[in-house]
C-alpha cells in the first residue's frame, strides 16, 4: 500500500485509463454482473474509481469498517470468495490489457487481498 506503487502505475491518469476497461469487464462477467445490476451505474463507476485508487496504493482512506459496512448488503445476497476472485480476475485482465508490467499487477493483487476478509464480512 505504498504511494510508490501509485506513482509507478501512473497515478490518477492510470486510474482513469483503467476504470472503464475494468468496469466494462465486470458488467460483462456473468459470474458477478448481478451484484452490479441494481445500483446506479454512475455512482457505481465513481466507487469503482475509488476502489482502483485504493488498489493502486493511492490516496483514498477506506477503513476495514467502511469495507464491511459497504458490502454487508451484498454478503447478505450471497457474496463469497468466488465473486471476490472474479473481481480480482477482471482487474488483472484489465491491467494486462493496458500492458501494465506483471510485477506491478502482482502488487495490486496483493493490495486487493488485504481487503478480502472485510469485504466478505469474515
Amino acid at each position: 500500500m505504498s504511494n510508490e506503487l501509485f506513482q509507478k502505475l501512473g497515478g490518477e491518469a492510470a486510474v482513469n485509463a483503467a476504470v472503464d476497461v475494468f468496469y466494462r469487464r465486470v458488467l460483462s462477467d456473468d459470474r458477478i454482473s448481478d451484484f452490479f445490476d441494481d445500483v446506479d451505474m454512475e455512482r457505481q463507476a465513481a466507487k469503482q474509481k475509488a476502489f482502483l485508487t485504493m488498489a493502486f496504493g493511492g490516496p483514498v482512506h477506506y477503513t476495514g469498517a467502511d469495507m464491511r459496512k459497504g458490502h454487508a448488503h451484498l454478503v447478505a445476497r450471497g457474496l463469497n470468495d468466488s465473486h471476490f476472485d472474479a473481481v480480482v480476475d477482471n482487474l488483472v485482465a484489465a491491467l494486462q490489457e493496458l500492458n501494465v508490467p506483471a510485477e506491478l499487477i502482482a502488487e495490486v493483487g496483493a493490495v486487493c487481498e488485504t481487503t478480502r476478509n472485510d469485504v466478505l464480512g469474515k
Binding site: R43, K49, A50, P59, D66
Partner: peptide, 10 residues
C-alpha cells in the same frame, strides 16, 4: 459521505 477523498461522489 464515503471515501472522503474526492472520488466516490457520495
Amino acid at each position: 459521505y464515503s471515501c472522503r477523498s474526492g472520488v466516490c461522489q457520495s
